[in-house]
């Protein structure tokens, strides 16, 4: 494992902790898209089916369990928690995320490394992860003002993707090992989706102003 991969994983982990902290400390999930969180829960469950069949390392196993449990916990809080669910911006979270699920599954059935249950679900999870942030970005854009923790959460998620791209470049040139092209292309698309958000995030940071996304 190289430094970029580790930095990516840690940024991802911190993003989840920031989100959990926001929900726990403020007892509020305002600004957070339940649809994006449901997509992430689906991404991790579909991808980590190999938890029971392949052992890679203690690190991988622990991280997989953490990502599955934390994403399910967030969905549970937003749907079931007596106090937290009241702050959910349901009327702003209108992205038709079911379409993403159907399209990604369709693409995974056609484009995969091997037509087996595990590989199709793996490809599905990669495609779905690439677009899972869309409901969240739409919600932020609709609400206009973004609170600090939500802004940091999305920024860290984007940072995780950026580190993964550096990791693939490093692996290609230094380790002479190319990561799977399905991940690489999906990863590039996923990171590109953050470009607009990053632009406004840096602008607000530079001007020391509250993050505001134009409609």
């Amino acid at each position: 494992m190289n430094i970029f991969r580790l930095a990516g994983d840690m940024t991802h982990l911190i993003s989840v902790l920031v989100l959990l902290l926001k929900i726990y400390a403020t007892k509020s999930c305002s600004g957070i898209s339940l649809k994006t969180q449901e997509l992430y829960a689906m991404v991790f469950v579909a991808r980590y089916l190999d938890l029971f069949t392949d052992y890679i390392s203690f690190y991988n196993t622990v991280m997989k369990i953490v990502f599955i449990l934390s994403s399910l916990a967030i969905v549970w809080c937003m749907r079931m928690h007596r106090v937290v669910k009241r702050s959910y911006d349901k009327e702003l979270d209108t992205f038709r995320h079911n379409i993403l699920i159907v399209v990604c599954f369709g693409v995974a059935v056609i484009i995969n490394e091997k037509f087996t249950l595990r590989e199709v679900f793996w490809a599905f999870s990669i495609y779905l992860e690439a677009v899972a942030i869309l409901p969240q970005l739409v919600l932020l854009q609709r609400s206009g003002n973004v609170d600090n923790l939500t802004g940091q959460y999305v920024f860290l998620l984007g940072g995780y993707r950026a580190f993964y791209i550096l990791n693939w470049i490093y692996r290609y040139f230094v380790e002479q090992r190319f990561s799977r092209w399905i991940s690489a292309i999906s990863g590039l698309i996923q990171t590109a989706l953050y470009a607009d958000f990053f632009y406004y995030y840096f602008l607000s940071w530079k001007n020391n102003a509250k993050l505001h996304l134009p409609a």
């Binding site: 991802h12 890679i56 991988n60 993964y164 990561s179 799977r180």
Partner: peptide, 10 residues
Amino acid sequence: SSQGELHDEL
């Protein structure tokens, strides 16, 4: 990146 290789990334 041959087929059947383990998915070692998260």
